[in-house]
């Protein structure tokens, strides 16, 4: 009971402030000019990104460089955590060996449910990323949804189950590098045909085989999807190494 007192005070303060401040705020009755510009131009208009989804066209076309640097921040964050957990080749091999007293994951119910759900997550994340230029969603959203799938496998089975089926840290890093390289290449391609950096229209075709692909947006979304999903997976694989194994490595290094 005693610990609820601060909460009640907090709630009363917020309600009081809201009650007194809200009537005094000016009411927004019309669109801001910038918002109106994006809404009118994202599909129709002279500065079209050929995408009905305004948010994605702002992210990867109108404000493309912002997202490019955002991706590089994410890249640096992943690199930072990989550096924290760096292992040499021999230690990496040893970390893949299953510890003898290791219990094999959770119960059968959870394992079966995980097996079904992982497939569903893969399908949903791919649809979020690849329809990112048509419906809400995009590369980062799809990629972070994709990263939940290996996470569930690590929780229900173990990290060894992932590695035995071929998804180890090196593979995840390779996928991430392919994604980042793809983003950089798609950003540089317009320079070849006399455009500017990260230009979308009219350099990339808006339709492929009758399907609306919105120029470069689908490529950016796809490569960001790979980069984010694989980057998170690499970090999780490192984090899932049992603490005992790490301590063994540290002790051995201290002895040498």
């Amino acid at each position: 009971m005693k610990r609820l007192v601060p909460l009640i005070i907090l709630l009363i303060t917020i309600f009081g402030l809201a009650y007194y401040i809200t009537p005094k705020l000016p009411q927004q009755t019309e669109l801001r000019p910038l918002g109106e510009f994006y809404l009118k131009n994202s599909y129709f208009g002279d500065y079209s990104a050929k995408s009905p989804e305004v948010v994605t066209s702002i992210l990867w076309d109108y404000r493309g460089l912002d997202t490019l640097f955002e991706t590089s921040v994410f890249f640096i964050a992943i690199i930072g955590s990989l550096t924290l957990f760096r292992l040499n080749k021999k230690q990496e091999e040893e970390a893949k060996q299953k510890a003898e007293e290791f219990r094999i994951g959770l119960t059968l119910i959870i394992k079966s449910v995980t097996r079904v759900i992982v497939v569903m997550i893969l399908a949903v994340s791919a649809s979020i990323a690849l329809h990112g230029h048509l419906t809400p969603g995009g590369g980062f959203q799809g990629g972070s949804a994709l990263a939940v799938a290996p996470l569930l496998i690590i929780a229900a089975y173990s990290k060894y189950a992932l590695e035995e089926h071929g998804l180890d840290k090196t593979r995840a890093l390779i996928f991430r590098s392919i994604g980042l390289l793809g983003i950089a290449l798609v950003a540089l391609v317009p320079l070849l045909s006399g455009g500017f950096l990260m230009q979308n229209q009219p350099i990339f075709p808006a339709k492929l085989g009758g399907q609306l692909v919105s120029g470069s947006l689908i490529y950016y979304n796809f490569f960001e999807f790979l980069a984010v999903g694989a980057g998170f997976t690499a970090v999780f694989l490192l984090l899932a190494i049992p603490e005992k194994v790490f301590k063994k490595f540290l002790r051995r290094e201290a002895n040498e």
């Binding site: 809400p136 990263a147 939940v148």
Partner: peptide, 15 residues
Amino acid sequence: APDIVLAYVAVAVGI
């Protein structure tokens, strides 16, 4: 803000 929802659910609840 459906774009935020998709990123927020995956990151804040899962990851």
